[in-house]
Simulated scan of single mutants.
Amino acid sequence: MAAEFDIETLKFDDAGLIPAIAQQHDTGEVLMMAWMNRESLKATLTTKQVTYWSRSRQELWRKGATSGHMQTLKSLRIDCDRDCILMLIDQIGAACHTMRRHCFYTDVTNGNEVELISPMEP
C-alpha cells in the first residue's frame, strides 16, 4: 500500500535533526552515519545527491561536493519509530573523512581495538 510521504511525520530531535545511515545499495556495506534536517532531506530527495546537515559548521553539506566522493540516493527507508533514516546509496570513493571506504573501521574485541582497513589512496 503506497501513501504520499510527509516529512512532518518523521521525529526530528530538539535540534531539528534525524540520524541518517548510509548503506551501499548493492553490497549491504554500512558506510557512515550523519545527521539530516528537513532542508537536507528535501534536497536529497529532490536531487538524489545525498545532503547532510553539518553540526560543526552549521550548514548543509552535500557529500562529495569538494572531494568528489559522491553519494547518490537509490532508496530511502524509515525505521519503525520514524526517528532514523536508512539510505541505500551508490558511493563513489571513500565515505569516511579519513579516506576510508566506510567509517566503521575500528573493531573492539576482548578489550582491544583493531583497525580493520587502511585509508584509500587519493
Rank of each mutant, 00 (worst) to 15 (best):
E59N: 10
P19I: 02
H102G: 11
D6H: 06
N112W: 09
E59M: 10
L76P: 00
R57V: 11
V114K: 13
A20G: 06
M120L: 15
T72D: 08
D6L: 03
E113P: 00
F5T: 06
H102M: 04
R77V: 03
A95K: 10
A2G: 05
G93H: 07
I85D: 01
M36S: 08
S75M: 07
P119F: 02
A20T: 13
H102L: 03
D26L: 08
D14C: 04
R62Y: 01
G16V: 12
D79P: 00
T44P: 04
H25A: 15
R38I: 06
T66Q: 11
L116V: 15
M33L: 15
L60S: 11
T66H: 07
I85R: 03
D13I: 09
C84V: 07
M70E: 06
Q24W: 02
H69K: 05
C103M: 08
T51H: 01
A43L: 13
L86A: 07
H97K: 05
I18D: 09
E39N: 07
L86V: 14
E113K: 14
Y105F: 15
D83R: 03
I78D: 04
H102N: 14
I18M: 08
I89K: 03
F5H: 04
S67L: 11
A15W: 01
E113D: 09
G68W: 06
C84N: 11
I89Y: 01
A3C: 05
T46A: 13
D90K: 12
A43I: 08
H97C: 10
H97W: 05
I85Q: 03
C96A: 05
R82M: 07
A95D: 12
M87A: 15
H97R: 04
Q49F: 02
K63L: 04
D81F: 03
Q49Y: 04
T51D: 02
L60E: 04
T106W: 06
L86N: 09
G93L: 05
A43D: 12
M120T: 06
R100V: 04
V50E: 02
A43F: 03
P19Y: 01
V108W: 03
W35F: 14
L41D: 02
E115V: 15
K74M: 11
L17M: 09
R77W: 07
Y105M: 09
R55H: 08
L73T: 11
V114A: 09
T44W: 00
G68I: 10
C103R: 08
R100C: 05
C96H: 09
D81K: 05
C103N: 11
A34N: 10
H97G: 11
D14S: 14
G28C: 05
L73P: 12
D90T: 14
D26Q: 12
M32F: 10
A3H: 13
S67Q: 04
A94N: 12
H102F: 06
I85L: 15
S67D: 07
C96L: 06
P19R: 01
D14K: 14
S40F: 01
A65Y: 03
T44H: 04
A2Y: 07
T46E: 14
A95S: 15
M99P: 00
L76I: 13
